[in-house]
Write a protein that binds this DNA or RNA. Sequence first.
DNA 1: TAGGCCATCTGGTCCT
DNA 2: AGGACCAGATGGCCTA
Length: 227
Amino acid sequence: MNASEENLLKSISNDTLLDLTQRYGQSAFGFGAGHGTGSPGRFPLTPATDFHSGQTAKSNESGGEHTSDDEDGFDSLDSRKRGSSFGDDKPGGGLAKKSKEQRSLRLSINARERRRMHDLNDALDGLRAVIPYAHSPSVRKLSKIATLLLAKNYILMQAQALEEMRRLVAYLNQGQNITSPIPTALAPFGQAAVYPFSGSALSTCAEKCTTYSGTPSTLFKHCNDKP
DNA sequence: TAGGCCATCTGGTCCT
DNA sequence: AGGACCAGATGGCCTA
């Protein structure tokens, strides 16, 4: 992890929304500031030499098509890594000594797992697209962990802002004039600021997922709630 | 060159 | 039984 990213994570982990807000205000979530200015960063990954054939294979970077993965996985695999025991002759490892049936099953499972991880990465890309940081080609893409932590705090910050707006509206609706700056009575913030869904009319997990994800519902099979 | 990040494979577990 | 999910292992790429 580079220094800039490290600093970001430090600032995220302490839950200081004020600090986070200041960073947003400065649009300081581009990691390119401290390093690699003018450098395109490490993404997208450059094509690598195929492990077996020596041919150049396109990276399976998330967002790419998942078409060829479905066959049996082998020929269309990302060339980065074939796994620890793939084709390995060591005892107990690899598919070489397994039956054709077992091998076929293993390849099928691998392809499924690959697809699953691609879906996960697609979702992470979607998350990166909506959280505020510099989306510039010269800026390094957020790492997975940074994306998740930043998203979490962004949600908290938005919830806090929403709660503040609600209080302000309520205050104004009482017919009181605001002669001084923002009333200090608006703080501290209630629980609703911490749990965005706590006051929501949406009661089931499925409803929340449908409303807030914008993602195909098939990706939310965790929802046990019946709408 | 070390460390961070990543994709992939793999075997285990749980669920439908 | 088959699929989803998970965590560990492995090795490639990139940056400081």
